[in-house]
C-alpha cells in the first residue's frame, strides 16, 4: 500500500468510521479484524482529545453549559470546524462565532459572548511581550516625546463590546461565588481584557468615553489627536476634559495597557 493511500484511508476511518483496510490475502484477515476493533482507540482518542482541548480553552463556558450540553457542542464543532493548526492550543478559535450561528445555542447569545471573553483572556496569557510605558517615563518626557514614541496597545489587549452581562456571568462562574446573584440579562457594556505587568490576565469595564478614547489611541497612537477626536465626536459637556483625559492615560499606563513602538526584545 502506498503511503498516501494508507494515510488518507486511516484518517478517513478515524473521522468517519468504517473498516481500515480490506485484506486481499486470507492470512491477513485476522489482522484486519483486530484493526477494525482497535481503530476505535484512535477514533475515541480523536474526539476526546479535541473535546478536552475545548474544555480547557473554555472552562467557564463549559461550566455554564454543563457536561452534556458542552459535549454535544464539542462533537458538532469538531465535525464542522476540524483543527488545521499544529498546536492544539488554537483549537476552538471559532467557537464564539459557532455558538452565535448554531441552534440551539444561538438562542442564548450570552453564551457566544462568554466564549468570546474566554478566548480573549486566553490570548492575553501568551500574547507577545513588549516593554510597557511606565509612569516615570510619562512624567519625565514631554508631550513631544510622547508623540515621537507613540502609544500602542499592549499585544495582550482586546477591546470588547457586550450586549449581555456575560462578563459578570463569567465572574460568578469562574469564582464559584454563590453570593453573586447574576442571571443572563441584556446589558450593553464595554470591556478591556489584558495581561498586566505582573502577568495577571484580567478584564475591567470601561465607560463609553474611556472606551472610545483608548480605541482611538489604538488606531492613531497619538494621544492628543485621539483626545481631540473623541471630544469633538461626543459633544458632551464636561467641566474638565483635560484632567479626565490625563487620568485615563495615567490609569492605562499603570495598568500596563500601553507600549512604545519600535521594540526589539
Amino acid at each position: 500500500m502506498q503511503l498516501i493511500d494508507w494515510q488518507t484511508q486511516f484518517q478517513n476511518t478515524v473521522v468517519l468510521g468504517g473498516p481500515l483496510w480490506e485484506p486481499t490475502n486470507p492470512v491477513k484477515i485476522n489482522q484486519a479484524k483486530i484493526n477494525d476493533q482497535r481503530i476505535k482507540i484512535y477514533q475515541n482518542a480523536y474526539v476526546q482529545r479535541l473535546t478536552l482541548a475545548l474544555r480547557e480553552n473554555y472552562t467557564v463556558t463549559h461550566l455554564a453549559m454543563g457536561d452534556e450540553e458542552f459535549n454535544s457542542l464539542a462533537t458538532r464543532y469538531i465535525e464542522m470546524q476540524p483543527s488545521v493548526r499544529p498546536s492544539i492550543r488554537w483549537f476552538g478559535s471559532h467557537l464564539s462565532r459557532f455558538l452565535m450561528d448554531q441552534l440551539p445555542w444561538s438562542r442564548s447569545p450570552w453564551l457566544s459572548e462568554l466564549a468570546n471573553l474566554e478566548w480573549a483572556l486566553r490570548h492575553s496569557q501568551d500574547a507577545e511581550d513588549l516593554q510597557n510605558w511606565t509612569m516615570d517615563e510619562l512624567k519625565n518626557k514631554t508631550p513631544d516625546d510622547w508623540e515621537e514614541e507613540g502609544f500602542f496597545l499592549h499585544p495582550s489587549v482586546t477591546l470588547m463590546e457586550f450586549k449581555w452581562n456575560s462578563p459578570q456571568l463569567w465572574k460568578k462562574i469562574s469564582t464559584n461565588d454563590l453570593e453573586l446573584k447574576v442571571s443572563p440579562q441584556r446589558l450593553v457594556q464595554k470591556v478591556v481584557v489584558w495581561r498586566s505587568v505582573d502577568l495577571a490576565c484580567q478584564w475591567k469595564c470601561l465607560s463609553t468615553l474611556e472606551f472610545e478614547l483608548i480605541k482611538a489611541l489604538g488606531r492613531s497612537h497619538n494621544f492628543f489627536e485621539s483626545f481631540k477626536r473623541v471630544k469633538r465626536k461626543t459633544k458632551l459637556k464636561m467641566d474638565d476634559w483635560n484632567s479626565w483625559a490625563a487620568m485615563c492615560l495615567s490609569t492605562w499606563v499603570q495598568d500596563g495597557l500601553l507600549v512604545k513602538k519600535d521594540q526589539d526584545i
Binding site: 488518507t8 486511516f10 484518517q11 478515524v14 484512535y42 476540524p82 492544539i88
Partner: peptide, 24 residues
C-alpha cells in the same frame, strides 16, 4: 504522522513499514 490534507488530528499515527515510507 499527525494529519493529512491540511487537517491536524493531534495524535501520533503509525507509519507503514515500507521502503517508500523510509525514503519519504
Amino acid at each position: 504522522w499527525t494529519g493529512v490534507g491540511g487537517r491536524k488530528m493531534h495524535d501520533l499515527y503509525p507509519m507503514p513499514y515500507t521502503q517508500e515510507s523510509i525514503e519519504h
